[in-house]
């Protein structure tokens, strides 16, 4: 990277700005962490530094994880089951469609039109389908089941998996696949044995983005579940109703809800820009 040499004062200003930006970025998480470690009496006091300003305790975490297993552990496992299943299904569907769009030329509708149509699903507000979806799930007896959440989240994440994989397949050289076809492989075998292993990074990032979006989804989860299949996002929302402003529990749940997808996000940093812009900007 070429840059002219900066004067010292400019460098200092820049570093100050960077420190402010970093503090701004991590403050909410830091506050959640220390609130979860505070005794109720310390929560509403202005204290930032554990051990120095207040005595930290693991009591809140212990209560949440041992006495409230049904809510908290149940919420985490529902979120996990739903997010993994939805990501797996969306990935399977997205791989097939992504490969089809990258490699074949469709006649009746043009490839670009099909891709745009799939992409346009992201442009539809979830509120547009929430009421009919609720009625459909009620009709099939799927209210308060993980299956209802899996169905809706696959729908929301298909545009990501299709677009990410379409781009990934599109960038592979054609020769390998062509020689596989000449050797008698069917297009499906070519996809599975030749192309798929080569797009492993794209598969991982598509899977993680689908997992995270499903894990974070709230509107549908809130409407479709109430006791047996509540994922973590709904469990946090329940803290306030049942326990008033017990912020020490809100923050433990908030952290449990935020940690899994964000850890995964850091693993795919390189692909995240591309994934979240549905391939419009290369990271």
């Amino acid at each position: 990277m070429y840059r002219p040499k900066m004067p010292a004062w400019k460098r200092v200003l820049m570093i100050i700005a960077m420190v402010i930006a970093t503090v701004w970025l991590i403050f909410p998480f830091y506050w959640a962490v220390i609130t979860s470690l505070k005794k109720p009496a310390d929560v509403f006091k202005l204290s930032f530094i554990p051990f120095v300003q207040f005595q930290p305790t693991l009591e809140n975490w212990r209560t949440e994880l041992t006495l409230r297993t049904k809510e908290v552990v149940g919420g985490l496992s529902t979120s996990f089951i739903v997010a993994v299943s939805a990501a797996a299904i969306a990935l399977a569907i997205g791989t097939l469609a992504g490969y089809g769009l990258a490699r074949f030329r469709y006649q009746r509708w043009k490839n670009r039109d099909i891709a745009m149509w799939i992409l346009s699903q992201r442009f539809l507000p979830p509120a547009a389908t929430v009421i009919p979806f609720f009625l459909m799930m009620r009709k099939f007896g799927l209210i308060d089941t993980p299956l209802a959440l899996i169905l809706v989240n696959v729908t929301f994440t298909i545009p990501f998996t299709v677009m990410i994989l379409r781009d990934a397949f599109g960038e592979l050289p054609l020769e390998l696949e062509e020689s596989a076809l000449v050797d008698g492989c069917t297009p499906f075998q070519t996809l599975v044995w030749i192309a798929l292993p080569l797009v492993a990074p794209a598969l991982v990032s598509a899977a993680i983005i689908s997992f995270a979006f499903t894990w974070n989804e709230f509107l549908f989860a809130f409407i479709l579940t109430y006791s047996q299949a509540t994922p973590m996002t709904v469990v946090i929302a329940g803290t306030q109703d049942t326990q008033g402003v017990q912020f020490w529990y809100v923050s433990t749940r908030m952290l449990m809800a935020v940690i899994p997808p964000t850890i995964l996000a850091m693993a795919i940093q390189r692909y995240i820009v591309r994934g979240l812009t549905l391939g419009a900007v290369k990271g």
Binding site: I26, P28, W31, F218, T233, V250, S251, R253, A265, M266
Partner: peptide
């Protein structure tokens, strides 16, 4: 660090901001 907010549940962000 910037990737963290992107994949954090908005509802969780809402609740932590309620505390803040």
């Amino acid at each position: 660090l910037s990737t963290i907010p992107l994949l954090a549940a908005p509802v969780a962000i809402g609740y932590i901001c309620m505390i803040i």
